[in-house]
Design a protein around this nucleic acid. Structure first.
Length: 269
DNA sequence: ATACCGACCTGTCAGC
DNA sequence: TGCTGACAGGTCGGTA
């Protein structure tokens, strides 16, 4: 489900609510397969482990944990398409597909819910490094270097987490729309001016989406159960058949890199 | 090395 | 009303 702006919103919300709290015990649903590290490893998280901070890295939520001794570790959560991390009162109803519940010292619970089970929770003892570069901070020169010589469609390259981490289907389409670039263009074939436009468009759209709390489509909510509002400002994603907001040409939907792709045939070249 | 394509899961919605 | 198939914010592994 969630891309960079949604994960950022969730991680910030979790950090605000959980930093300084402690994990007392961990409970698993009947089907804990989404948990990449074996459930046993997660269950071994020592009682009283302190949550130092919660941050985003790419599309991952990183919990920095410290036990009483020098045992540094991290929980790395990827929400897949439908994953949610909720902070809830113990008496509040357990949603279907709840795979993990961590009881906290404060009396609240941290819950991992994921109907489609594409999400993952993993325990690490070393600092997590995302697979690619942060799109929010990358320089134009580094951005151009990522795509040089690539024949894959630019949309696919934007989605490739080994290049940029955090960009997903919505923000790939939205940034290509803003930059006026067709999704099927070969990644290595853009002009310098087009790379510059795409670089700026991507950073702009991510920044605006974070400010709006992300895009809520069907079931996305942040750690407080609040919806984001950026879906109201999508210009391409999900607007197939509707008039382009710039030129009124109907927005087209095609498949690129195996994903539904939305673009304006007139504005994007 | 790179690129396509199915697989992984469940839920929802459009169409018949 | 109910069934079937397509599709959904993501990633991985096999094959060409």
């Amino acid at each position: 489900m969630p891309e960079l702006p949604e994960v950022e919103t969730i991680a910030n919300g979790l950090n605000k609510r959980l930093a300084g709290d402690r994990i007392d015990s961990v409970w698993f649903g009947s089907k804990p397969e989404p948990l990449k590290s074996s459930a046993a490893v997660i269950a071994r998280t020592p009682e009283g482990t302190r949550i130092e901070q919660v941050q985003r890295a790419g599309k991952h939520i990183v919990f920095d944990l410290a036990a009483k001794k020098k045992d540094q570790r991290q929980w790395i959560v990827h929400l897949g398409m439908t994953g949610r991390m909720l902070v809830a009162a113990p008496e509040s109803e357990l949603l279907p597909h709840t795979h993990l519940v961590a009881r906290l010292k404060s009396g609240r619970e941290l819950r991992f819910v994921d109907p489609r089970r594409f999400g993952r929770l993993e325990v690490r003892n070393s600092a997590f490094e995302g697979p690619g570069t942060e799109p929010t901070r990358i320089s134009l020169e580094d951005f151009i270097a990522l795509f040089r010589g690539r024949k894959t469609p630019i949309k696919g390259a934007l989605l490739n987490q080994k290049l940029l981490h955090g960009v997903g289907n919505i923000y790939a389409d939205e940034s290509l729309f803003r930059a006026g670039v067709r999704p099927r263009r070969k990644a290595g074939s853009l002009t310098r001016a087009e790379y510059a436009k795409l670089h700026d468009a991507l950073q702009e759209v991510l920044k605006e989406a974070i400010a709006a709390g992300g895009s809520s489509i069907s079931d996305y909510v942040d750690a407080d159960g609040e919806e984001g509002f950026f879906q109201l400002r999508h210009r391409a994603y999900g607007r197939q058949g509707k008039p382009c907001l710039v030129c009124k040409t109907p927005i087209k939907k095609i498949v690129v890199a195996g994903r539904g792709t939305h673009y304006c045939p007139k504005c994007q070249r």
